[in-house]
Simulated assay, not measured.
Amino acid sequence: MFGLDNIIQSIWNVLVSIRITDIIDMALLSYLIYHGIRLVRETRAQQLIKGIIVLVAAYLIAVFANLQTMRFILKNCFQWGILAIIILFQPELRRIIEKIGRTRLTELGSFFTQSEDDLLAEKWNEAIDAICDASADLSSTKTGALIIIEQKTRLGEQIATGTVLNCTPSAAVFGNIFFPNTPLHDGAVVMRDGMILAAGCFLPKPQKEELIAKQLGSRHRAAIGMSENSDALVIVVSEETGTISVAENGELTRGFSKDSLKKLLRTRLLAEQEPDTSGKEKNTFAGRVMSKWKK
């Protein structure tokens, strides 16, 4: 009980000694540490931070367990660690400093305070370009493709049937995935948060498959089935005609070009102006089924 009173008294002494400048100092340091972590996220420096945490934990264990040799070695590592970090991660540090230097003074605040939504929008901007470039390339060579863009409904069941990639999208990556006779070309690609999460995924069948025009192949049927069971956007490139189609809410819209596809995706994913899809053919389960499908 006596020890507990001392601890409480010590904490109280620290609290009453805190000044306004100390609060500002701690807030500023926390701000810099937080945004510093965001800057190094998804770079080699992220692994560095994990390594430093492991070394600090090992040092604390060595201190409490009185492991003199380990304590001596780790203490010397920390003494030279800052210099080693600067040498090993000089390219990353230079890029960060150059990026700050290119940022205008009025934009400097937004450079550090960029929200998660802004970061996600940047990812989707790049992903949309990659999807549209890949769709146009695959359409020109009549290479079949099936790309699912996950939205609010999680697609864990479909992801579990494929191969997890978790890679940055690009036209080259999509081209390699859907290249004929490769292991993943028959399945679907699932995208989440602007990244290719998995490939070679299998999709559910449509609820009323008998109502779908017979001219539509397995990819289009799978796309309709997926859009029925979730709020996902599903992009299909026909292997027979090279036609680019989009399935959404159980409805298949065909005849997209690279530009119209980009406009649609930016509308759905980035909340831009609604595209005009008038004049495109549609296939739905509400009885609007064409008996003769133009190719």
Rank of each mutant, 00 (worst) to 15 (best):
I7C: 10
Q9S: 14
Q9Y: 08
S10D: 13
S10I: 11
S10C: 06
V16W: 14
S17I: 07
S17Q: 15
I20T: 13
T21E: 15
D22T: 03
D25F: 10
D25S: 11
Y31G: 02
Y34G: 06
H35E: 04
G36T: 09
G36A: 12
L39W: 07
V40S: 05
E42N: 15
T43A: 14
Q47N: 09
L48T: 09
G51F: 08
G51A: 09
I53M: 11
V54I: 14
L60K: 10
I61D: 00
T69F: 09
M70F: 12
F72R: 11
L74F: 08
L74W: 03
A84H: 03
Q90Y: 14
I96N: 12
I100V: 15
R102Q: 06
S110M: 07
F111E: 07
T113R: 13
T113H: 10
D117I: 09
D118I: 07
L119N: 13
E126M: 05
D133F: 04
D133Y: 07
A134G: 14
D137V: 06
D137L: 12
T143F: 04
I149P: 00
Q151P: 00
G156P: 01
A160N: 11
T161V: 12
V164I: 15
V164E: 10
T168E: 14
P169Q: 08
F178N: 04
L184D: 02
H185M: 03
G187L: 14
V190L: 15
M191P: 00
I196Y: 13
F202Y: 12
P204W: 02
K205H: 04
I212C: 04
A213N: 15
K214P: 00
K214M: 03
Q215R: 10
H220E: 13
A222R: 03
M226F: 03
M226Y: 03
E228C: 06
A232C: 06
I235Y: 01
E239P: 05
E240Y: 06
G242S: 05
G250M: 02
E251F: 00
T253L: 12
S260N: 02
K263T: 01
L264Q: 01
R266H: 05
L269V: 08
L270P: 01
L270C: 07
A271L: 05
Q273P: 00
T277E: 12
T277F: 05
T277C: 07
K280I: 02
N283R: 09
G287C: 10
M290A: 08
M290C: 12
